[in-house]
């Protein structure tokens, strides 16, 4: 497997404050990287930096063997006006945009792919509904379907299971594994450490600077990994009930 993504000395500052400092790692085309770390440790900012959504203060990011239009992305929070008129199909289809280049309109193949991905997320019934009328979890499913539509070579997910019910969460991890097995690299931010070490093959533990980067088995032996997993077992009863902001990790 060739390199998919490499970065060096990635540093992002908000005003005078470092949000991400000196992050460097490489992932291969078949990798499944989970990024963990406490709230405010710079995970989302790092992901945005990798995607070119925030300016780098220093460092560089390189994609190998594919273009920006082969990336899927789910943000931690998607900023949509509460009354935005868009139906689910329109939203999911917009995930296929990158494949078009200058072609202005969607093809039948695009619509099929959109329907397929909605189906995977158990949201086929929602296709004709208006996005603004969906529940939070339903909206999350739709945005995940859009991200899947866009993910040709690599998929970036920022806390993807937030708001999903336990059944869907388990199913979604399955979908990700299948996708990963087909050669799509996955980069996922998660507070669900147990699933992260279960499904992922590499871990990046952030605390503004990286505390740990390496394979899962090395992580389990590391100081950072042991502390986090122990804290996790002590605090959370149900790993699936995990939400951003509902618990604090002590690392």
């Amino acid at each position: 497997m060739g390199k998919a993504l490499s970065c060096e000395r990635v540093t992002v500052k908000y005003e005078a404050k470092y949000a991400v400092r000196d992050v460097g790692f490489e992932i291969d085309a078949g990798d499944y990287l989970c990024i963990v770390g406490e709230n405010g440790s710079g995970k989302s900012t790092l992901m945005k930096a990798l995607l070119g959504l925030v300016p780098l203060h220093d460092g560089r990011v390189r994609y190998d063997g594919f273009g920006r239009n082969e990336i899927g992305y789910l943000a931690q929070r998607t900023v949509v006006r509460k009354d935005f008129p868009a139906n689910v199909m329109e939203v999911v289809l917009s995930g296929r945009m990158g494949r078009h280049g200058i072609m202005p309109f969607y093809s039948g193949r695009d619509k099929e792919a959109a329907r397929e991905n909605l189906g995977l997320l158990g949201a086929s019934r929602l296709a004709a509904k208006s996005y603004r009328e969906l529940s939070g979890g339903q909206q999350q499913r739709v945005l995940l379907a859009r991200a899947l539509c866009a993910a040709e070579k690599i998929l970036f997910l920022d806390e993807p299971v937030t708001g999903l019910d336990p059944l869907m969460t388990a199913e979604f991890y399955g979908i990700l594994s299948d996708l990963n097995a087909r050669g799509v690299a996955v980069v996922m931010i998660s507070h669900d450490v147990e699933s992260a070490v279960h499904y992922g093959n590499k871990i990046l533990h952030m605390k503004t600077a990286p505390l740990f980067f390496g394979t899962v088995s090395d992580y389990l032996k590391s100081e950072a990994g042991r502390t986090l997993l122990n804290a996790k077992r002590g605090v959370a009863v149900d790993p699936l009930a995990d939400r951003a902001g509902t618990e604090v990790f002590h690392v």
Partner: peptide, 22 residues
């Protein structure tokens, strides 16, 4: 009309559109 779909994407979610190459 030519850029209708791109205009939708940029209007709906600029972050996603930007991240995925628009």
């Amino acid at each position: 009309i030519l850029f209708y779909n791109k205009i939708f994407a940029v209007t709906f979610d600029e972050q996603f559109a930007g991240a995925t190459g628009t």
